[in-house]
Design a protein around this nucleic acid. Sequence first.
DNA 1: CGGTTTTCTTAACATACATCAATAAGAAAT
DNA 2: ATTTCTTATTGATGTATGTTAAGAAAACCG
Lengths: 198, 198
Amino acid sequence: MFEKIKAYHFNLLPQLTNQEWQAYEDCLTVKKYAKGELIVKEGEICNYVYFVNSGLTRFYLDADGREVSLEFIGDNEYVSAYESFLTRMPACENLEALKETELMQLSFDDLQMLYHLYPAFQIIGRIVAEQLFICISRHSNALMLLTPEQRYQQLIANGSPLLQQVPQYMLASYIGVTPEHLSRIRKKIMKPVLVAVY
Amino acid sequence: MFEKIKAYHFNLLPQLTNQEWQAYEDCLTVKKYAKGELIVKEGEICNYVYFVNSGLTRFYLDADGREVSLEFIGDNEYVSAYESFLTRMPACENLEALKETELMQLSFDDLQMLYHLYPAFQIIGRIVAEQLFICISRHSNALMLLTPEQRYQQLIANGSPLLQQVPQYMLASYIGVTPEHLSRIRKKIMKPVLVAVY
DNA sequence: CGGTTTTCTTAACATACATCAATAAGAAAT
DNA sequence: ATTTCTTATTGATGTATGTTAAGAAAACCG
């Protein structure tokens, strides 16, 4: 039950002592979500940080019906509506299970308790926040710098597993276009520049 | 010399003891930059976190000549090419003084020393990273959700001081359009919808 | 398996934005 | 004050992307 999250933390600094790890395990509980279920709902305060044991999740914003996908998070990663979690204010994004998904959850109160009892968790909390900052900062830079077509090309170039696992209309909003336009982009990429030289 | 940064930290949790504050002050040094000078150059490792005593700075990416403005940071705020600072890898963004600017700088090594000696700095480091995450996460969401015109309207609605202090062509790249197009957006906003009802 | 729903593609047309070029308006320098 | 450089505006034109609508393909379900 704890193998995956333990393996994840084994690669993290600082390493936890047995006592710290035991305290951490005691705070974790398992949750299962069916395909399509919402893990975090817009408008509600997010009370947990989740570790994805198995499955796939999607963050998205809902602009009166138009769903804008922000991020897809799968196996062996932490996920949370972290802004809401930190500020204790209602979340503006939704977190959805894209398929049968198993999570380990850690509550806000338990985390504060760990911060208070063990300085090592303070350091981990700092490093996690720093990593999150780096991820989203890169993502944000890509949004400013690249066209939607270039962002799609990057998914291909990186061999992103999202291309297999995520429906195209969600990828479309992720790269910032309509599903119709992504379809055009794909067509264009498949039949590359054919200049009529004969 | 330390009034502004001290006032800033007075509103932060946790409060520093006199000893901690003294240790912090001992690490800070003042730097002045002239208008147009680069504080952090793309390709170089950023070795400092800066507190802006006075002046105005701009982050931007350089896509072969086309400058894309990411953020403007002025008086009484911390600023750094934080990804580069954290990872010790070359920065991909430039940080420029938009006018005569005075900064207080804290080096990477000194910060590690403070982290090591005083747990309070660990907590501050965590909270700072969390705040940064929140800021950029909101910015990133706005990029996905709003049109350039709506982003400009937001600047107006928030009474953003950037409208006065930053040249329009920099604001244009900040909201994601060309200077020509921002000019047209402004024109359209000034002469609002005139439907011919007579 | 057949039917139903969801997802993907295609086309025609509309709109937002980029590009290029010219000019005008301001700011800085001499 | 005159010149020079930078910044802002405007118009003409091109391209990328959105919208609407229809049909095709794929996934799901009884």
